[in-house]
């Protein structure tokens, strides 16, 4: 079957098997390998992408179901060579180690901040509670999201504020 959806702002049309999972469509059909997968049962959240602005587990969405929708992946976050504040926050606060859960965590954090620009620690922990990180113990992920909340324009803002 044919599916047409918007990925990181670009409309793409591809011929697919109806059973193809969105995570495989992104990784294999579009070669967007920043979205990972870590389980089969929608528990780990490594495959998290934004669909119409909301984080979803792309291992549990058929590519066909995403037809007509807008999907955003980690590759679509950087704007004009400038990292999203969440990406910068993960660097600043050591919010990642092996990096495998990171794209999913970053996307969820982006969606959280879009709805709630100043989340509490508890709200951040709740927002990422459907995603597993095996490396960081979450402490620095929470800090990274707070960093992004405090630096809404990201690295540019830090440079400016230091001037």
């Amino acid at each position: 079957m044919q599916v047409t959806l918007t990925v990181n702002g670009d409309e793409v049309t591809r011929e697919i098997e109806p059973r193809m999972l969105l995570v495989h469509f992104l990784r294999e059909t579009l070669s967007l390998t920043g979205t990972h997968w870590g389980c089969d049962t929608s528990n780990c959240g490594a495959c998290t992408v934004l669909m119409d602005g909301e984080p979803v587990k792309s291992c549990t969405v058929l590519a066909a179901m995403a037809g007509g929708h807008e999907v955003r992946t980690i590759e679509g976050l950087e704007r004009a060579g400038e990292l999203d504040p969440v990406q910068q926050g993960f660097i600043e606060e050591h919010g990642l180690q092996c990096g495998f859960c990171t794209p999913g965590m970053v996307m969820t954090a982006r969606a959280l901040l879009d709805r709630n620009p100043d989340p509490t620690e508890e709200e951040i922990r709740e927002a990422i509670s459907g995603q597993i990180c095996r490396c960081t113990g979450y402490v620095n992920i929470v800090k990274a999201v707070r960093w992004a909340a405090e630096h809404p324009a990201g690295a540019a803002a830090t440079a400016a504020s230091a001037s």
Binding site: S42, G45, T48, P55, K57, T60, V61, A127, G130, Q131
Partner: peptide, 9 residues
């Protein structure tokens, strides 16, 4: 129920 991402769908 489940987690926020599952609840989105």
């Amino acid at each position: 129920i489940a987690d926020p991402l599952v609840r989105n769908r």
